[in-house]
């Protein structure tokens, strides 16, 4: 009743990092509730995943052997049954694309209050969570008045658990009703291939919403040419079809680690930051002094990109196009 049950995540034969972050978050919460930390590993090579997730602080790992890859109808059934068996106080899932494909259904099925994309968990008399709103411009705290809850936690917000664990590993015999499996994963596709690999670049100039119009991209292309940089972008530019998917930096695009990353007209939403926070030096050009990108930037220019970029092109002897 004071325990925490956290669901690990894997894809295509790899345990995903967020699983080890869940161990850290889950251990911390279980310490506050005074309970044990249970992990669940569902589908695929569960013994191998259980070994990898067996880090310091984990008490029990439950393995559910059924199928290979993620299927939400399998996950939903397995988690609901495991929850009924263990009666934990809190259920933790990653706020990943797959986490959001089953956690709401599980919460609904178990009549648990659900809070998503949580960045902090505190337990005193009850659970209080912190989450962001309005694209990260504000944080809110939310009290959960019930004794039980389901929470999805934001990836990369907690550190990955280290140190070998000595958890008990138990096979859980879930009774999966195949009749309830009404979606079938038929395969995977790698997107973002093509002529350029931005993850290999040492110097990236990256553009976001601030560029306003497709035609203005020629301005940045001139800068890229004058500085021999590589052009990348945030999601909206690719969504608009202004640059191909292989240029996208972020959670659903590429993770980049250049020496220098210049973010031009990019606000720095969490999904973008996930892809570029590993850059050695981050420079921002942005008119909004409250944009989250300033939290990461080492250097910045708080000014209009349409004034600064032409000046920069001239600095390097390039040609400023008419835009």
């Amino acid at each position: 009743m004071t325990d925490v049950l956290a669901i690990t995540e894997h894809r295509r034969d790899e345990l995903r990092d967020v699983s080890l972050e869940m161990v850290t978050a889950g251990r911390d919460l279980a310490d506050q509730t005074g309970g044990d930390l249970h992990l669940a590993v569902i589908s695929g090579d569960v013994d191998d995943y259980a070994d990898q997730a067996n880090r310091e602080g984990v008490d029990v790992i439950h393995t559910v052997e059924y199928g290979e890859e993620f299927n939400h109808d399998v996950y939903t059934q397995a988690i609901e049954q495991l929850y009924a068996e263990l009666d934990p106080q809190y259920l933790l899932a990653p706020n990943s694309v797959n986490g959001l494909d089953y956690a709401p259904a599980v919460a609904e099925g178990l009549s648990l209050p659900l809070v998503t994309d949580v960045v902090d968990l505190e337990f005193e008399d009850g659970l209080t969570v912190t989450r962001e709103q309005y694209g990260g411009k504000v944080e809110t705290t939310i009290d959960v008045a019930e004794d039980h809850a389901a929470v999805t936690i934001r990836p990369a917000e907690w550190a990955q658990a280290e140190g070998d664990g000595d958890a008990t590993i138990e096979a859980f015999d879930a009774d999966i009703d195949e009749g309830q499996i009404q979606s079938t994963v038929t395969g995977y596709e790698e997107v973002a291939g093509g002529d350029v690999d931005i993850s290999e670049a040492d110097f990236l100039i990256s553009i976001g919403r601030g560029i306003d119009e497709e035609a203005n991209i020629t301005l940045i292309e001139s800068l890229v040419e004058a500085t021999d940089a590589t052009l990348s972008s945030s999601r909206p530019i690719v969504d608009n079809g202004w640059l191909p998917a292989n240029r996208q930096v972020g959670q659903s695009g590429k993770v980049v680690t250049p020496d220098v990353y210049i973010a031009i007209g990019i606000s720095g939403a969490v999904q973008h930051v996930a892809g570029m926070k590993g850059a050695d030096t981050i420079v921002t050009i942005n008119t909004d002094p409250n944009a989250p990108i300033w939290d990461l930037a080492d250097y910045g220019i708080e000014d209009d990109l349409f004034e600064v970029v032409p000046a920069l092109i001239e600095e390097f002897g390039g040609e400023v196009p008419d835009v």
Partner: peptide
């Protein structure tokens, strides 16, 4: 999905 991978599902 994350990281430039898409899942094909029916």
């Amino acid at each position: 999905l994350e990281g430039g991978v898409e899942e094909l599902t029916e």
